[in-house]
Design a binder for these strands. Structure first.
Lengths: 116, 116
DNA sequence: ATGGCGTATCGACGCACATCAATGTCGGTC
DNA sequence: GACCGACATTGATGTGCGTCGATACGCCAT
């Protein structure tokens, strides 16, 4: 590895850097990956978008199945993923479950991106 | 759907919102999901972190296998995923392939998060 | 209590993905 | 030319995930 190849080093020399500590340890990486996994599905992104742009900021499940053309169990599953990732909040009121964005969650993700 | 249930409407009334257009169409959602899919793996996050914090900002593959404890083909695969997502740039110089962050790519993702 | 409705959970199916070993390709050296 | 080293690609394998139908759970009205 990194044998100082005697040819074509970096433009200002200093070819390969042995790369010391991983800069981001495995635990932190795994933790952040969970959040990005939650965002790595088109339907979940649309769910977030719908909830965010809703007039009241809160939406119940029955209003989410139609726009996405998904069955109720599937929507419920996606909402749980977003919930577990800390992106959504759930409030049960009577029969209905109202979902809303966790305040500052998206900003927090944007921050972690910049802090990579 | 949304039967005006005669019980427990939203706090300021206005219970369920029929949720008009999906706010984020399927094509845009699928496109953004590709980027988040690329970020949804701990090892790829560590790759980005290593490359970003490298003194020169450019790293070759041979210096990436050891910190991640992965084989060379696996690292190459992950780099290709990040490349296809537009997060990395590749520059072949002699025998080596140098990878660097695409300028502004992370900022662009942060922006798309805020624009959900 | 009985029934109906909104939601969550379960089991199963199929597809996508992460990983590795083996191989292929390209550039430089002898 | 022949050889070596860095990287990419291929094929195979195990795991994870999205989706659905069926079912279970709570809450309310009758």
């Amino acid at each position: 590895m990194n044998p100082q190849p005697a040819l074509a080093p970096a433009p200002g020399d200093a070819a390969c850097n042995p790369a010391g500590p991983p800069a981001l340890d495995a635990a932190q990486a795994k933790e952040q990956a969970v959040v990005f996994k939650a965002l790595a599905d088109p339907n979940r992104l649309r769910l977030l978008s719908i909830i965010k742009t809703a007039p009241t900021g809160t939406v119940c499940v029955c209003d989410l199945t139609d726009p996405l053309n998904l069955t109720q169990p599937t929507v419920s599953h996606h909402l749980k993923v977003l919930l577990d990732a800390g992106l959504l909040q759930r409030e049960k009121r009577g029969i209905w479950a109202y979902f809303s964005l966790t305040p500052g969650a998206l900003d927090h993700i944007a921050g972690s991106l910049a802090r990579l």
